[in-house]
Design a protein around this nucleic acid. Structure first.
Lengths: 157, 157
DNA sequence: GAAGATTGACGAGTCAATCTTT
DNA sequence: AAAGATTGACTCGTCAATCTTC
């Protein structure tokens, strides 16, 4: 007999605690978005553009579909955004060797420089945020949020 | 001499940990949005409409500016959203007694019923999410995220 | 002058349809 | 038929300007 192992039996008080916790996450998420956006504006990047740059820094030769999924943005928007970046010389589209439908995207040298600038901004913000948490807190958050994502994803199937 | 007390000395490894933790939060946030949106659609509510209803359930007689701040949405959008809710009979606008510029917003009986339905959906989602965390985890998150919000807010002034 | 609310113009991103390739 | 990418129509929310009240 299999059993559903959870860290938490759900009752009225934990529901209230969980709601409060989640509201604090939503608040922090919004504050972080506003702060990141604020400090990125001198570079001329929106939050979505920033996400795309960070992804290409970590995962060279990503496809547009991969970016679409990792940035939680529709593929049509990514398509237009990449076209703009290509026109401005930040990104190069290479035809995929394995799949003729797809593009492999790479940062140009210019794109890499600007992405590094954006990364520096992100690091500054994340470093400040990290002051609110201990190392073990961060581990708890990473583990829990990853598990929560899986649970949430399963609630839509 | 005052000193900046933080839970975390920032170095390269904690920056990586903090980035990973934050990415997991962003992922969970997006999955939660998608799941909530998915389960709210039968009720015909968008995420923003849901947030407004939850806020009026908790804080009766809120003003539009208060909703705008608590829902992280521009006041113009709130104004139009409230007009729609008023037209559909979910909300009543009462002139504020203390400030003739402002409206005091209240849910009508019909609005209260629908807000309860939306709350039930939210509770279902939050309860599932809570399975990923222990009670002490939830406390750590609430405390840390609240502190992080303050830090982030201060980074824009 | 500052703040709450409203309106209109605008923009970023989504959805649906289409084309090509698998 | 399914999947990657693109285009056009559309929607939701923002920004700037305005009106009224503080």
């Amino acid at each position: 007999m299999t059993e559903n192992i959870t860290k938490n039996p759900i009752n009225a008080s934990t529901l209230a605690d969980a709601t409060e916790a989640w509201l604090s996450v939503v608040q922090a998420y919004n504050e972080c978005s506003a702060t990141l956006s604020y400090h990125l504006s001198p570079l001329g990047f929106s939050l979505l553009e920033h996400e795309v740059l960070m992804n290409l820094l970590r995962f060279d030769r990503s496809t547009q579909r991969e970016l679409s999924q990792r940035c939680y943005s529709a593929k049509s928007g990514i398509s237009m955004l990449i076209s703009r970046f290509e026109r401005d010389g930040l990104i190069e589209r290479h035809p995929s060797l394995k799949d003729k439908r797809a593009w492999c995207l790479s940062l140009t040298p210019k794109g890499q420089f600007l992405a590094q600038d954006a990364l520096a901004v992100q690091n500054k913000v994340v470093a400040q945020m990290a002051k609110a948490f201990s190392t073990s807190d961060l581990t708890i958050i990473t583990t829990g949020m990853t598990a929560a994502s899986t649970i949430l994803e399963n609630m839509r199937s």
